[in-house]
Design a protein around this nucleic acid. Structure first.
Length: 495
RNA sequence: GCCCCCAUCGACCAGCGGCCUAGGUCGCCACCCUUUCAAGGUGGAAACACGGGUUCGAAUCCCGUUGGGGGCACCA
């Protein structure tokens, strides 16, 4: 079927506009999987030709995101390679040289139309229901007209001359056979009138120079492909194979974008997602096998085939990601989980950064208690916050649980019971409290609910016997006292 | 307006002409377990967009319709 006798060379080509968007990450991931699966080379190239739009900070964010995700590149910024540099802003000479060759060879020409003229003609064309692209007028300029423009010092852009008719077709790696009528494509600009090389030129020159032989990218770029094939041919490059990935959709079935909320890697990281889970999830968006859904990086690499990638768009389903992230959290051992949880506790001010020895110890104890209860690391503070600081009692929980008639009595007895325990430990705490529940003839649910509120401030948290044991006798008794007081007020008022 | 792409449960994936009374996973519902909440276990509801062909036979191939998306820049 598909023949990879050439060593595969693919690239990720982000425009550095800050933390990466998950949609782009999926594209990069597929390239990466393809390279790793075939033993090929994964190149990272930064597409920052439009210098005014991009910052150094955004550039670093991109590298940082890729590293966090574990998508390592074989050639590119900071690792080097045979085709340096890997930032387009530093490769201008190559583009200009290529543009010169194209003009010299009669494959491209100077266009003296101004932005204003172009805009006006475009609008007129649209008004007349004609296609809005460039009309090719500067192609037919006479010697005299050119001389006149040059005389008045008018600046020019460089346009690629596209054949007026004919059909260009290619076999798309994921979509299949694609045919384009060349009359649909107008003479597109490859160098701006201020001398800045444009996207199409830069991409084609770089893909040629870097010997990229498989271009896998979003299908929003699909209609660019004929243009780029034409450019490759004009430049004498080996034309790479192209594959176009469908968009990742938001819950409203529109392409996923900022307005859907958190879509950048930074957001997911801050939201408590693990890179492995995100990778696993993204890989399955548009590609998959029937049997397994939890796939390690190696398994993904092993099974991934570009030809199995879907040509239909997929929706980004946060629910499934959350579930999967929970699965990945459960695969962590307690030490790893404690380590990963620390920043989230610190962010809530529950522990110091770095944590004190006691705090670190407590986080370690907390890990097994929260492991099965979390889908995202950011949920840790809500589950075990009470371990580090005395929580506010949630009014709703108090109203619901503490206002019940038997509760003051229950909490008082619990205090007495806990005061007498010797030695202090989880088993003893549990035994004592269960004994009290039995004495009072209370079902576990009724008996322990108020304890949760007293200790955690809410009815939802890590198991309460563990919490009490970890918090210690002194602090536990104080919290019980506070809750008992509140309970007296509430139950008195209510009944 | 013109060009291009897409179409299986709510979602993701399996299905490559008979094994499909359409399978798995998430989510949802119910039950079990249970100190809350989870996790775990068991079971359940839930889809081939529509219309024509081709074929002995179509979710699978072809053509239309409808619906969705993308593109038509001196952005990338």
């Amino acid at each position: 079927m598909m023949d990879y006798n050439r060593a595969v060379r693919v690239r990720a080509a982000p425009a550095p506009s800050g933390s990466l968007h998950v949609g782009n990450v999926r594209t990069f991931l597929y390239n990466w999987l393809f390279a790793r699966h075939t033993g090929g080379t994964f190149v990272l190239r930064i597409e920052d030709t439009d210098v005014s739009r991009f910052t150094e900070e955004a550039y670093r964010a991109v590298l940082e995101d890729l590293r966090w995700l574990g998508l390592d590149w074989d050639e590119g910024p900071e690792v080097g390679g045979a085709h340096e540099p890997y930032r387009q802003s530093e490769r201008r000479q190559f583009y200009l040289e290529a543009a010169g060759r194209l003009v010299g060879g009669g494959k491209a020409y100077r266009c003296y139309c101004t932005a204003g003229e172009l805009k006006q003609r475009r609008e007129q064309a649209q008004a007349e229901r004609r296609k809005p692209g460039y009309d090719g007028r500067c192609r037919r300029l006479t010697q005299e007209q050119v001389a006149a423009f040059e005389q008045e010092g008018r600046s020019y852009a460089v346009r690629f001359q596209v054949p007026d008719e004919g059909v260009l077709d290619y076999e798309d790696l994921v979509v299949g056979k694609i045919a384009t009528h060349l009359d649909q494509i107008d003479d597109f600009a490859i160098v701006r009138s201020d001398g800045a090389p444009l996207y199409h030129l830069a991409v084609v020159v770089d893909d040629g120079l870097m010997e990229i032989n498989h271009v896998i990218r979003g299908d929003d770029l699909m209609s660019n492909t004929p243009k780029q094939i034409l450019l490759h041919e004009a430049l004498g490059n080996a034309v790479p194979a192209f594959g176009h990935l469908p968009q990742v959709l938001g819950p409203d079935r529109k392409p996923l974008s900022k307005r859907h909320g958190s879509t950048s890697i930074t957001d997911f990281r801050a939201g408590g997602y693990l890179p492995g889970a995100l990778i696993n999830f993204l890989a399955l968006l548009g590609w998959g096998t029937s049997d397994d859904t939890l796939l390690s990086r190696d398994e993904l690499v092993d099974r991934f085939e570009v030809r199995d990638v879907h040509s239909s768009p997929a929706m980004f389903d946060t629910k499934k990601l959350d579930w999967m992230n929970g699965e990945y959290i459960r695969m962590l051992d307690d030490c790893e989980l404690a380590e990963l949880t620390q920043p989230f506790l610190a962010a809530e001010g529950l522990i110091d950064q770095p944590p004190s020895a006691v705090q670190a110890q407590n986080v370690q104890h907390a890990a097994p208690l929260i492991k099965t209860r979390m889908r995202r690391l950011s949920e840790a503070p809500g589950l075990v916050g009470g371990l580090f600081t005395r929580p506010e009692i949630d009014p709703a929980a108090a109203e619901k649980v503490l206002s019940v008639e038997h509760v003051p009595e229950l909490l008082r007895r619990a205090s007495v019971g806990l005061a007498e325990i010797e030695p202090w430990g989880k088993e003893q705490v549990e035994a004592a409290l269960r004994a009290i529940a039995e004495e009072m003839g209370l079902k576990p649910r009724k008996a322990f609910g108020p304890l949760y509120v007293a200790v955690s401030g809410t009815t939802v948290s890590a198991p309460v016997f563990d919490l009490i044991a970890l918090i210690g006798r002194q602090e536990s008794l104080e919290r019980l006292a506070i809750a008992e007081q509140l309970s007296r007020e509430l139950s008195g008022a209510v009944t």
